[in-house]
């Protein structure tokens, strides 16, 4: 979805394209259609398009208060005691061996709790042994 949106009043006059100081607006004329184009990375959100539009067609509010785009989605590791999210499953993969042991699935609160640390460590060890046995 484009953050630059126009309403039904847009008549394709191209005033916005001609006035955009960032060259963020352009158009394409196909045999039957004129298509207005917008490039968000060039857009300075200066509102010139909104000011100059003779049709009052630019819906600037979408450029000023856009939604969130999903960027990446990764499996999550939660604290084994309370369930609070702590890191993604991919995080320990790239850690140096000196800090890798710190990546235990515990939140800050339960990391400070010796008993919780011991329980989780024994669980991890048991799981590792179990995997070794299956091999």
């Amino acid at each position: 979805m484009s953050y630059f949106q126009v309403n039904d009043r847009c008549n394709g006059c191209l005033a916005c394209v001609q006035c955009c100081p960032g060259n963020a607006l352009d158009y394409r004329d196909d045999p039957e259609q004129r298509t207005l184009l917008h490039n968000m990375t060039r857009c300075a959100r200066c509102a010139t398009c909104w000011r100059v539009c003779p049709q009052d067609a630019v819906e600037l509010q979408h450029l000023l208060a856009g939604g969130w785009d999903e960027v990446v989605s990764l499996p999550l590791v939660r604290c084994q005691v309370c369930g609070e999210p702590v890191y993604t499953a991919r995080l320990p993969e790239g850690l140096d061996e000196r800090v890798a042991p710190l990546a235990v699935p515990l939140c800050d609160r339960h990391r400070a709790d010796d008993r919780a640390r011991t329980v989780v460590a024994s669980r991890i060890q048991a799981r590792a042994q179990d995997r070794g046995g299956k091999r």
């Binding site: 100081p21 960032g22 060259n23 060039r42 300075a44 200066c46 010139t48």
Partner: peptide, 15 residues
């Protein structure tokens, strides 16, 4: 420059 001087119409891509 795509920031201030674009908005004040003196140094953006069009200028």
């Amino acid at each position: 420059c795509g920031s201030c001087v674009t908005v004040c119409r003196v140094g953006g891509d069009a200028e």
